[in-house]
Design a protein around this nucleic acid. Structure first.
Lengths: 215, 215
DNA sequence: GCCTACATGTAAATAGTTACATGATTGA
DNA sequence: TCAATCATGTAACTATTTACATGTAGGC
């Protein structure tokens, strides 16, 4: 085993590996795409990204290429294209094969879902159902606390809390749709003997995916 | 002016001041209520809260009381009840009178809304509308990026992004309701000469308040 | 010639959590 | 008496942003 210099983030690391697993890229491009899979509305800062890339290189999961062949006469440099190594690919596969309790927590669930296309069906299901029961748990707490304090709160606070509750309920319904279409896909696959465990899009454009209302 | 030892957080600070403005409380109780106004689903940790309280005391906005009168025979201590000072009250009033661009950003909007009951009507309106146009801006970016990359993305990533979009759209609709009921309230007040600028609850339980899907 | 977007990076500050340490009170 | 919940706190660590520093490429 490597000497465990550990340290680096978790979600960001996973997101970067996942994007580079699709295709090599330089940091600037990577940053633009990260918001898509991280689901955080503001882009990650370079102050986070570059140190992370450096770290991944140091751990042997990434290598830096000096931007392909010098196109024509320009010979421009400056860009550093990052690419997964064999170990990097293997490591990423290992990461997306995990289905532990933290995979369905707020911070990770989004990225994991974004990479479901490369995740095994059984793992996908475990994460979706884990997420669902996590939210159900949250609903219990929220409803209880709302029931306890309903008359003490003014209408604005109430509106805020009610909204939070609605958001979680909505995410549960969304998950139900996703889970249902996973089941459909797996039974259809078994019956018809279709070759891949490829994703099936839910029919409606409904459902949503809120998590927090502040921050 | 005080020597600016500054340092402390912002949202957490505001939330603590707002809760203590309603009634004095000890730290443990405070923590429980904080999740309600911070809208963060996991409670804030003591490792954040106590240092923050200490800081607020140091800046003269809070004082520590040693739990009222010793009830009957017990004379139990240990609990430290925090209470706003006159300067603390004034400072809080100043904070909730602000309506700058950061007030409608993700981190602050929730807390500000939670304290709308003590916020002037014009400020409330400015914040709600600021938030609304901020989200509209977000929708533009999101729609554009989704349009650009639609065919490149697999169905899961698409589902994720679509969900994020839906969530923001839903928050806009919710804000529209809140804004409408603010307008109603202000015209009714003017016409009937009702005494307070007190909040009016929206009729439906609809609307939601999502912001981020990961994290 | 200048401005905008592209592109990479570092140091310091900021925000917050986790793990630990301690002890009182309440109810089964 | 034992466990759970109440209650307060600190030190170390984790994650992330902001501000700065630097330079290139392309359009007007």
């Amino acid at each position: 085993m490597a000497p465990r210099s550990a340290k680096r983030s978790g979600v960001l690391e996973l997101a970067v590996l996942g994007l580079l697993d699709q295709s090599p890229m330089h940091g600037y491009e990577l940053r633009k795409r990260l918001s898509g899979v991280l689901g955080t509305f503001h882009a990650i800062s370079y102050g986070s990204l570059y140190p992370c890339l450096k770290d991944l290189v140091a751990r042997g999961w990434l290598v830096e290429d000096g931007e392909g062949e010098p196109t024509g006469l320009s010979g421009k440099r400056a860009r550093i294209v990052y690419r997964l190594t064999a170990e990097g690919k293997e490591h990423f596969q290992q990461l997306i094969a995990e289905a532990g309790p933290d995979t369905w927590e707020d911070e990770r669930f989004g990225v994991r879902l974004a990479f479901f296309g490369r995740t095994e069906a059984s793992v996908r299901m475990r994460i979706l159902e884990g997420r669902r029961s996590r939210l159900e748990e949250r609903l219990d707490t929220l409803r209880q606390s709302l029931a306890r304090s309903r008359e003490r709160l003014d209408s604005y606070t109430l509106e805020l809390q009610q909204h939070g509750l609605d958001s979680v309920e909505r995410e549960v319904r969304w998950l139900d749709e996703l889970i249902a279409s996973e089941r459909d896909a797996s039974t259809t696959t078994k019956k018809s003997g279709a070759p891949t465990g490829q994703p099936v899009t839910t029919t409606s454009g409904a459902g949503n995916y809120p998590t927090a209302h502040g921050e």
